[in-house]
C-alpha cells in the first residue's frame, strides 16, 4: 500500500482506540504503555508497504498491534504476579468514579494475571471475534481457541471474584 507518512498517521489517529486497548491490556505501567503504543505505530509504519488491502485497515492494524505486543517484553519486572485488585474504598472515596470506570479498572488489573497469549485472546473476544476468527488471528486451531477463550474468561472471573467483586 502506497501511503505517505502524514496519511498513515491520520489513519492511525482515526483508529487510535485499538492501540490504546492493546497497550493498556499488555502494560499496566503508564511508561511501558506509552512505549508499546509508540512501538506499535513504528512497526505498523515499517510494514504498511506490505499491506495489500485484503482486509480493512483497522483489522490489519489490530493484527500488527497484537503481534507487536506479543514480542514486547516490558522493562518492569518488579511487579508481583498476584496484585490485589483496587479496593472498594479507593472507588468509594472518589465520588466521581463511575461504575464503568471502576469495572474497567478492575478488569485491567485482573488481566495482569494472564499470559501474553491469553491477553490477546480476551482482547479479540471482547472485540467480538468468534473462536474461529481468534484461531486464524493467532495461528492456533479452532478447538484450542475455544478452550483458551473459556479458560481465560474463567480465569478472569475467578480473579475478580477472589477479590470480592462481582459485575
Amino acid at each position: 500500500m502506497k501511503i505517505t507518512e502524514k496519511e498513515f498517521l491520520k489513519k492511525v489517529e482515526q483508529h487510535k482506540g485499538i492501540l490504546l486497548k492493546v497497550s493498556r491490556i499488555y502494560c499496566s505501567h503508564p511508561e511501558d504503555r506509552k512505549d508499546l503504543f509508540q512501538e506499535i505505530i513504528l512497526q505498523m509504519w515499517k510494514s504498511v508497504k506490505r499491506f495489500k488491502g485484503n482486509c480493512q485497515f483497522s483489522t490489519w492494524m489490530y493484527q500488527v498491534a497484537i503481534n507487536t505486543a506479543l514480542v514486547f517484553h516490558k522493562k518492569d519486572k518488579r511487579r508481583p504476579d498476584n496484585i490485589p485488585l483496587a479496593t472498594n474504598d479507593a472507588f468509594a472515596n472518589d465520588p466521581y468514579q463511575q461504575k464503568h470506570e471502576k469495572q474497567l479498572a478492575i478488569f485491567y488489573q485482573a488481566t495482569e494475571g494472564l499470559n501474553e497469549v491469553e491477553k490477546a485472546v480476551i482482547l479479540l473476544y471482547m472485540d467480538g471475534y468468534s473462536s474461529d476468527q481468534i484461531a486464524v488471528a493467532l495461528g492456533i486451531t479452532s478447538s484450542n481457541a475455544r478452550v483458551k477463550v473459556n479458560r481465560t474468561k474463567n480465569k478472569l472471573q475467578n480473579t475478580i471474584e477472589a477479590q470480592n467483586y462481582e459485575f
Binding site: E5, L9, G17, L20, D35, Q38, E39, T68, H73, L104
Partner: peptide, 29 residues
C-alpha cells in the same frame, strides 16, 4: 459492560506528528 467501557476509555496518549519522533523501546525484537 466492560466492552462498552473499553470503547469509551480515553487515554492521554497522542499519535506523534512524525514516525521519526518515536524513540527506542523495550521490545525484545
Amino acid at each position: 459492560d466492560i466492552k462498552q467501557a473499553m470503547e469509551n476509555d480515553s487515554a492521554d496518549f497522542t499519535v506523534p506528528l512524525s514516525v521519526s519522533e518515536i524513540k527506542s523501546s523495550h521490545s525484545s525484537l
